[in-house]
């Protein structure tokens, strides 16, 4: 983990309520796809944990949805604005587990961390399939970006206004065989993917966090291999480790 001041080099609306922010500064603490950063915004006491969409030499990109005061503030940031950010948080995905033809499944703002993952997997010559799901056409983003990495891309919208009508799990049967899967999205989606999946895989979870680096125990969950902090031993948890709550 590293703390630093990062400068906004771009902050663009890319879909309904969804923004992409590129921050320049030292990205060296971000070592794995699926890690997150924790960003301090003016007027909010706690930081905002956001998954990393892409890591570059001079910074990184995040994609976030405006859901409250903090993300609303972020959406108004302009080029040159600065943020205090903790980078390189969490464990990230296990790229080595993918097999030859992994499947990536993302829902809404669960899609962004899969982009860096897809980049790393395609760079290793894996045949990557991606299913991305949204509520409606106006919320769809990153279809083209995944396509240009060479991934096979399926888009699902709940209302059928774009791509396949239905949920990501409705599309899973059309993908054909896959060797492993990686999923990120809202918890009901993750649960549905868990039930439908036919191979091993891993899930990235979201939780309300206090610190984001393992100090406060605010985001803990129970797993087969003991208690885990979503921010430290997570956010990625292997399928075989998961104990669903409720």
């Amino acid at each position: 983990m590293k703390q630093g001041i990062y400068t906004v080099s771009e902050n663009l609306k890319i879909a309904d309520g969804v923004y992409r922010m590129t921050l320049s500064g030292d990205p060296s603490a971000i070592t794995a796809a699926g890690q997150f950063v924790n960003l301090l915004t003016d007027g909010c006491y706690l930081r905002r944990p956001i998954s990393v969409c892409e890591v570059g030499k001079d910074g990184f990109t995040i994609i976030y949805k405006v859901v409250g005061k903090g993300t609303e503030k972020m959406s108004r940031a302009k080029k040159g604005d600065e943020f205090d950010v903790l980078t390189g948080l969490g464990n990230g995905y296990d790229v080595a587990a993918s097999g030859k033809s992994p499947l990536l499944i993302g829902g809404g703002v669960g899609v962004p961390p899969l982009y860096e993952l897809a980049k790393r997997l395609t760079a290793q010559g894996k045949r990557v399939s991606v299913i991305i799901g949204f509520n409606k056409k106006s919320e769809v983003f990153y279809e083209k970006e995944f396509l240009s990495l060479g991934c096979k891309v399926f888009v699902a919208t709940a209302d059928g206004s774009y791509g396949e009508k239905g949920f990501v799990t409705d599309v899973m049967k059309k993908v054909g065989t896959y060797t492993y899967f990686y999923a990120c999205g809202p918890e009901p989606m993750l649960k549905a993917v868990y039930k439908k999946s036919e191979t091993d895989g891993e899930f990235s979870f979201e939780r309300r966090m206090g610190c984001g680096f393992g100090a406060c125990m605010g985001c803990s969950c129970k797993t087969v291999t003991g208690n885990k902090r979503i921010c430290k031993e997570g956010p990625v948890i292997k399928k075989g480790d998961i104990i669903w709550e409720d």
Binding site: Y45, L46, R208, G210, C216, C219, S220, C221, E245
Partner: peptide, 19 residues
Amino acid sequence: FGNPTPRIAECASGMLNSV
């Protein structure tokens, strides 16, 4: 293990925890 999550909330100039 402590209490079920969510067990962190935010407020003006502070936070709540029910860890």
